[in-house]
Amino acid sequence: MRADQIAHRLSTPLTSPAYPPVVPRFTDREYLNIVYRTDADALRAVVPEPLEIDEPLVRFEVMRMGDVTGYGPYTECGQAIPVRLGDQHGEYLHAMYLDNFPATASGREISAYPKTVGAPRLYVDHGVLVGTLDYGTLRVATATMGYKHHEFDLAEARAQISVPTFMLKIVPGYDGTPRVAELVRTEITDVVVKQAWTGPARLQLFEHALAPLADLPVREVVSASHILTDLTLAPVTPVHDYLEEAR
């Protein structure tokens, strides 16, 4: 293989890429969102500067991807933290757990999504929308919400899931020091909200050494939503270079 051909490859392994060269379109992406209040000190310990926190809130999410170009259906779960960068409000993606390896690899390599292995589920059980996350054989999170109790404003639902998203992109060098250390920003585009609902909700997080969602403990459930949408993910843009700051 010629050197100029290698220079245009985007993923490894070279001859059997871990993920497809597509910009994925999500059709029938279903969200269970539970916003809860947590400990301010716990948030400050994990949210990177220069992001700032106004209120000690976390959005726990379980997302069932009905159909994704290049990847097929899969399920994802994680925590997003409302933050501010200057006068811009958004969310910092703290943790994400997936049951699809290509989506995990592409999210980490192409963008900066903090994705790792997990076994999330989203389903309905006796009139209750249930979202769970298992890590290996152990339960890490259980979320429940009354199934479609009250309609939720579609514009408000769209605003909830389309806020700017901030993430950390860290790539180690071969000597063990960071080669890339950036705060990046992205947001979803081409959003079509098909349904949105709200209702009573509860959330339990369980202690786990390698899936430490419970390090941001649940003190009070603030709100919940159940949203069905189509959307596309936009590329990331660097907004802060930690290595440049350190020089």
Rank of each mutant, 00 (worst) to 15 (best):
M1R: 14
H8S: 15
L14K: 11
P24T: 09
R25K: 15
R25H: 13
R25Y: 11
F26P: 00
T27K: 11
D28I: 13
D28K: 15
L32N: 05
L32F: 04
N33L: 11
I34P: 00
Y36E: 05
T38A: 02
V47S: 01
E49I: 06
P56L: 04
V58G: 02
R59K: 12
G66C: 06
P73A: 07
Y74L: 11
C77T: 06
G78W: 00
G78D: 04
Q79E: 12
P82C: 05
R84M: 06
R84Q: 06
Y92F: 14
A95M: 10
R108S: 08
S111N: 15
Y113V: 14
Y113K: 10
P114Q: 04
K115V: 00
G118T: 05
G118L: 05
G118H: 03
L122T: 00
V128D: 08
L129K: 01
G136H: 07
L138Q: 12
V140E: 03
A141G: 09
A141V: 08
A143I: 03
H149T: 15
F152Y: 09
F152A: 01
A155Y: 05
A157R: 00
R158Q: 11
A159H: 07
S162H: 02
F166A: 00
M167C: 10
K169G: 02
V171K: 10
G173D: 11
D175I: 02
G176K: 07
P178D: 01
E182P: 01
E182S: 07
L183E: 01
V184A: 04
E187L: 12
I188T: 15
T189L: 11
T189Q: 15
D190G: 07
V192L: 14
K194E: 10
W197G: 01
A201T: 06
L205P: 00
H208L: 13
P212F: 08
P217E: 12
V218H: 02
R219L: 13
R219M: 11
E220Q: 05
V221C: 12
V222M: 04
V222S: 01
S225P: 02
I227A: 00
I227E: 03
L228W: 10
V236M: 05
A246R: 12
R247P: 06
